[in-house]
Deep mutational scan, measured.
Amino acid sequence: EDTPTSDDLEQFAKQFKQRRIKLGFTQADVGLALGTLYGNVFSQTTICRFEALQLSFKNMCKLKPLLNKWLEEADSS
């Protein structure tokens, strides 16, 4: 899998936040949902820092596919 560039991550974080708000989920909701879906719960702080691009590049890269999958799930339900 290609490592995203920081531009990709920035773009995704922006879109993710917009979609999340549009779908009516809080950052805490997302963190809990990730726990339900993938077995690891993320704190509201982590989601907040992802959206604000304040996590390390490595952590951003790790979270992106999970959040992307969550968006697909949320969109289809």
Rank of each mutant, 00 (worst) to 15 (best):
L55N: 02
K17N: 00
Q27G: 04
V41C: 14
L9G: 02
L34V: 05
E73M: 07
A28S: 10
G35I: 04
K14Y: 04
R19G: 05
Y38W: 05
L9S: 03
F16C: 01
A28C: 07
A74L: 10
T5H: 10
I21K: 09
L23H: 06
G39K: 06
F42R: 05
G31W: 06
E1V: 09
T26M: 02
L37C: 11
V41Y: 09
N68P: 00
N59P: 03
T5D: 11
K64A: 10
L37G: 05
L37I: 15
G35T: 14
M60R: 02
L34C: 06
S76F: 08
Q11I: 10
V30A: 06
Q54W: 04
L9C: 06
G35P: 02
L67M: 13
T5I: 12
A33Q: 13
E72K: 09
V30H: 03
D2M: 13
G35L: 03
E51W: 00
K69M: 15
T46F: 05
E1Q: 10
G39T: 05
E51N: 00
W70K: 01
D29P: 02
K22W: 04
F57D: 09
L63F: 04
T36I: 07
L66D: 01
R19P: 00
S56A: 05
F42E: 10
K58H: 03
T3W: 07
D75C: 08
L53W: 03
K14R: 10
S43A: 06
D2G: 12
D8P: 05
S6T: 15
E10F: 15
F42I: 11
V41E: 14
L53M: 13
A13V: 11
R19N: 07
G35Q: 14
C48G: 13
E72V: 13
T26Q: 02
L34P: 01
D7A: 08
C61P: 01
C61H: 08
L55A: 03
M60N: 03
A33T: 09
N59Q: 13
C61E: 08
L55S: 03
L37D: 09
F50N: 00
D2S: 13
D29W: 02
T26H: 05
R20Q: 00
Q18S: 12
E51R: 02
L63H: 03
T46S: 08
F25C: 07
N59K: 12
T45L: 08
G31F: 04
M60G: 03
F16I: 01
K69D: 06
C48H: 12
E72N: 09
A28F: 03
S77I: 11
I21L: 12
F16W: 02
R49G: 06
D75N: 11
T26S: 12
E51Q: 01
E10I: 10
F12G: 03
T45C: 07
C48M: 15
S56T: 08
N59C: 11
F16H: 00
D75E: 15
D75Y: 11
D29Q: 11
R49H: 05
Q54N: 09
K58A: 11
F16Q: 02
E73H: 06
L37N: 09
M60V: 03
Q44K: 12
M60I: 00
D29F: 02
K14L: 10
A74Y: 08
Q15L: 10
W70N: 04
F16A: 02
M60S: 04
D2L: 10
G35N: 13
A33C: 07
A52K: 10
L66R: 06
Q27I: 06
N68S: 15
L37A: 12
L34R: 01
Q18V: 08
K22A: 13
R19Q: 09
Q27L: 07
T5E: 08
D7L: 04
I21M: 13
F16K: 02
T36V: 08
V41M: 13
C61L: 13
S6D: 09
W70T: 00
D29C: 03
M60A: 07
P65Y: 15
T45W: 07
K69L: 08
N68H: 07
Q44C: 03
Q11W: 07
R49D: 13
F50S: 01
K17Q: 12
G24L: 01
P4R: 12
I21V: 10
S6N: 11
T45Y: 05
T26G: 04
T3M: 15
T5K: 11
Q18E: 13
A33Y: 05
L55M: 14
L63M: 13
S77P: 13
Q15W: 11
L23W: 04
F25N: 02
L63E: 01
F50L: 03
T36H: 13
K69Y: 15
I47D: 01
I21A: 06
K64R: 09
S76K: 13
L67E: 00
T3R: 10
Q11T: 11
E51C: 00
S56N: 08
N59D: 15
D7G: 15
K22I: 06
D8T: 09
E1M: 14
K64G: 04
L23G: 04
T5A: 11
C48R: 13
A74H: 11
G24M: 01
L55Q: 03
A33M: 10
A13N: 00
N68G: 15
G24Q: 03
I47R: 02
P65K: 06
V30N: 04
K69P: 00
K62S: 11
D75S: 14
V41P: 11
Q27W: 05
T26C: 03
K62M: 13
K62C: 06
V30Y: 02
P4W: 15
R20A: 00
R19Y: 02
E72L: 13
E72F: 07
E1C: 11
L66T: 06
S77Y: 08
K62I: 11
D8W: 04
Q44Y: 07
G31V: 09
F50R: 00
D8L: 07
L71K: 03
R20V: 01
Q27Y: 15
L53A: 13
A74N: 15
Q11K: 13
M60L: 05
P4S: 12
T5M: 11
N40F: 07
D8V: 08
Q54Y: 01
T3F: 08
M60E: 01
P4H: 15
L63P: 00
L23Y: 08
S43W: 03
Q15K: 13
Q11G: 09
L53D: 04
N59H: 13
N59F: 12
L9Y: 03
K14Q: 15
Q11A: 13
L32W: 12
P4C: 15
D2A: 11
L66F: 11
V30M: 02
K14M: 10
E72D: 13
Q15F: 07
C61Y: 06
S6W: 15
A74Q: 11
I21R: 07
T26L: 01
A33R: 09
S43D: 15
S76V: 13
L63I: 08
I47L: 06
D8A: 12
F50I: 02
T45D: 15
A52H: 06
G24K: 05
L66A: 08
A74K: 11
S43T: 13
L71A: 03
E51S: 00
I21Q: 13
L53R: 12
G31A: 14
Y38C: 10
K17R: 11
T46P: 02
E1H: 03
K62V: 10
L37S: 09
V30K: 03
L34W: 00
M60P: 00
Q44E: 15
Q18A: 11
F25M: 09
K64I: 06
P65D: 09
S43M: 03
S6E: 11
A52Y: 03
L67F: 04
F42A: 12
L66H: 05
T36R: 13
K17L: 02
V41F: 07
K62W: 07
F25Y: 14
W70D: 04
L32V: 04
A33K: 06
L63A: 02
Q27P: 12
K58D: 10
L66G: 03
Y38T: 14
I47Q: 01
Q11R: 13
K62H: 08
E72S: 08
E10T: 09
F12C: 03
L23T: 03
K64D: 00
K22G: 08
L37H: 07
S56M: 01
A33N: 03
S77L: 12
F25E: 01
F25H: 06
D8C: 09
T36Q: 11
